[in-house]
Write a protein that binds this DNA or RNA. Sequence first.
DNA 1: CAGTGGTCTAGACCACACT
DNA 2: GTGTGGTCTAGACCACTGC
Lengths: 269, 269
Amino acid sequence: MASNTAPSFAALGNPPSVGGDALGALNLSPAFSPLYQQIKGLILQSLEAGEWKPGEAIPSEMDLAARFRVSQGTVRKAIDELAAENLLVRRQGKGTFVATHAEQHVQYRFLKLQPDNGDNQSEGPAERTIIDCKRLRASADIARTLSLRSGDPVLQVRRVLAYAGVPTILEELWLPGAPFKGLTAERLSSYKGPMYALFETEFGVRMVRAEESIRAVNPDAEQAQLLNVAIHVPLLSVARVAYTYNDTPMELRRGLYRTDTHHYRNALS
Amino acid sequence: MASNTAPSFAALGNPPSVGGDALGALNLSPAFSPLYQQIKGLILQSLEAGEWKPGEAIPSEMDLAARFRVSQGTVRKAIDELAAENLLVRRQGKGTFVATHAEQHVQYRFLKLQPDNGDNQSEGPAERTIIDCKRLRASADIARTLSLRSGDPVLQVRRVLAYAGVPTILEELWLPGAPFKGLTAERLSSYKGPMYALFETEFGVRMVRAEESIRAVNPDAEQAQLLNVAIHVPLLSVARVAYTYNDTPMELRRGLYRTDTHHYRNALS
DNA sequence: CAGTGGTCTAGACCACACT
DNA sequence: GTGTGGTCTAGACCACTGC
């Protein structure tokens, strides 16, 4: 459907010719970018623009090939990379879909804390308790990591996650005020499912990647009380910056993890 | 050179025919494995067998295509996956090389601890001090994670890594005795470069992937003394199991990281 | 210059899911 | 059956490296 409303040009204005080689003349040496990268960029733009929403199918490879006037193989390679980056999900026989944090088997993709015994699934979702949800002005360091200006409005949420009644994670997160206008503690508490899924459906913000930096710390008195541990118990301090498209930071999250029954798991390759 | 000594059969005995479709009849539904996966497996076997050593070039795509009687594109896809898994490294215009831990820019690939300020490189390599290097018999849990039997000979190494004179990492590692026969404290101390590079050149053991599980702990008296911290200082406990080819565990490493000047950095996607 | 990996196309067929 | 992604081939040309 979208394929005839789409711009009918060969990406970057290199009209394909015929025969074994379908490139009239590709870019010269400096700043050379392969066609499939350009296609990838165009698909990315549509993703950002919300042309296809999380969970929806994007047009078939054939459709996209026609739309961009390239071969199916070129579109394929572009999609391959986007799928490798977890922006798209391919399903044989069905189509290619915009990835979402709402799916069952990829839920909590960014949460690396696991129970020591037993699989990750059997434990089930955590019991969530919102401590508070305040609008305030960004401090200098918050502003810097969120690419805002000091004093810009931000939303601060604090909450506790418990497993089997044991408080295990204490989180404090900051969100830029503008994109998340209207977010309240009530909305957060009532929502079933991952917070990032709510961000997608209610605010059109999709978290694409994140970076965490981890330390070992002792809690202060308040933190210890909220996690129900003594102040001398060492905890994992996990600072996460999550990004949407275009490497735009959209969340700063500082977590305190108890590691007496859980551990942070990481695969290296 | 290897291409004519190699088995000249189409992988899994599906002789290619001619024309647009070069597969006579591919595998039927159950247990279907694409050709490029089979090629990948064959390349993997050569890698394991040491046909090409770390740092060396493997045969060109054309050579491999001839050797396995498939098209270049099929070999290409196999190599693509192996490169994505960091087993091979492609270099345009030069060839495809067996990855190694000895290269400058991928050194210490598994070490996620970074200085808080400044780039990872400027800090330079750590000062390494071997505490001891003992041969002993595997305890039950060491044996389990290394796929050995209790009482099998293992090597235990303990060492401290310091940055700018500050002891930062205390490591205790266990290696299976058989593959590492002949490893001594002297050999470890005298070697310049990453330990995993030594394992490659001296013992033919290449670490391919690893898994870490992280906790926050307090050190005991001895650990505190070795790291020059008080016993109430929280530390990162990082347990790593490193694997060679075929998911064979080859190392158990338990590290204690100071996080007052460094942090454990992790990218999520 | 030749050789290597990298890109692109066109076409055929396979495996899978839905109808 | 139809349509989707997935595999495979053959061939042409581009970009990079080193002789």
